[in-house]
């Protein structure tokens, strides 16, 4: 007779068997996935590539359903922004050339070799601030190579290399510490990643910083890492927390450079 309660003094052996089975599944999975992790990434890469193509096509098609006036207004705004940015770029180019000449005179060239790579996976598909790139050891990518935006700002470092793909960890990964310099005053700071393209810095209260200040790379190239967005301070605390947003649009990255 089946009873709706567990009879006394009858040990529950079924749980032991199930637990052993699950543990066996876990160990088997750990073995298989440790040995064939590159294969799984390679199998998924074509799916991610086609997904990116579909997403971009869908975005283009969605414009068909937008209101004409809204589209015309958006077009005009974007034209004005492009014109302004082009002026800024041309004025910055002369500064960049002067900096290049100065670096060369000190025997430090600002140029380096790099490999272009498409971003297959970026946040929020991944719960961490990691990127999966479509260049691996077949293109000479090595663990430790820097990952930078096409504009030049460094955003992370390669941590795993497969035969045709690689994985990079962004500086904004939660808990990751990166040395940087606050542009205002040149104060050296440590950026602590908070995930989602955000950082925080702990600064003494008297160090001057305002929203909009840039945070630069501590290397000689001094590329931009992020921009100060908010400052949290308590009058009784001798330190203040500065919240920084990454310069990299991590949720919509398509191409990066792997700098060797």
């Amino acid at each position: 007779m089946k009873t709706p309660y567990l009879q006394r003094n009858r040990p529950d052996r079924a749980f032991g068997k199930k637990a052993l089975f699950l543990l066996g599944v876990f160990i088997f999975g750990a073995l298989v996935f440790s040995l064939f992790d590159g294969l799984f990434v390679r199998l998924a890469a074509p799916i991610w590539k086609s997904e990116n193509v579909v997403a971009r096509s869908a975005w283009r098609v969605s414009g068909f359903f937008k209101d004409t006036n809204a589209l015309l207004q958006e077009n005009a705004d974007l034209r004005a922004r492009v014109a302004s940015d082009e002026l800024l770029i041309s004025s910055l180019r002369s500064i960049e050339n002067s900096r290049e000449v100065l670096l060369n005179s000190f025997g430090r060239s600002g140029t380096s070799t790099f490999i272009g790579a498409t971003v297959l996976v970026h946040p929020p598909e991944t719960p961490y601030d990691f990127l999966v790139l479509d260049a691996g050891s077949n293109y000479g990518v090595k663990v430790g190579d820097s990952v930078a935006l096409p504009e030049g700002s460094k955003i992370g470092v390669v941590i795993e290399v497969f035969s045709k793909d690689s994985r990079a960890k962004l500086f904004s990964t939660s808990g990751e510490q990166t040395n940087a310099i606050l542009e205002r005053g040149g104060a050296p700071v440590t950026l602590i990643g908070r995930g989602g393209g955000a950082f925080e810095i702990e600064l003494p209260r008297e160090v001057p910083v305002v929203a909009g200040d840039r945070v630069l790379d501590s290397t000689i190239t001094a590329g931009m890492i992020g921009v100060v967005r908010d400052i949290e301070s308590v009058p009784t605390d001798s330190f203040k927390k500065v919240l920084v947003e990454s310069a990299a649009p991590i949720h919509s990255l398509h191409f990066v450079r792997i700098v060797q």
Partner: peptide, 27 residues
């Protein structure tokens, strides 16, 4: 459990690459 392994392999980075049990989502 296998789906957890897939999430770790695709989107995570293991603390100790190679043969290991460092699969947080599967665990």
């Amino acid at each position: 459990i296998f789906l957890g392994f897939l999430i770790d392999v695709f989107y995570g980075a293991r603390a100790h690459p190679g043969l290991s049990l460092s699969y947080p989502y599967a665990l």
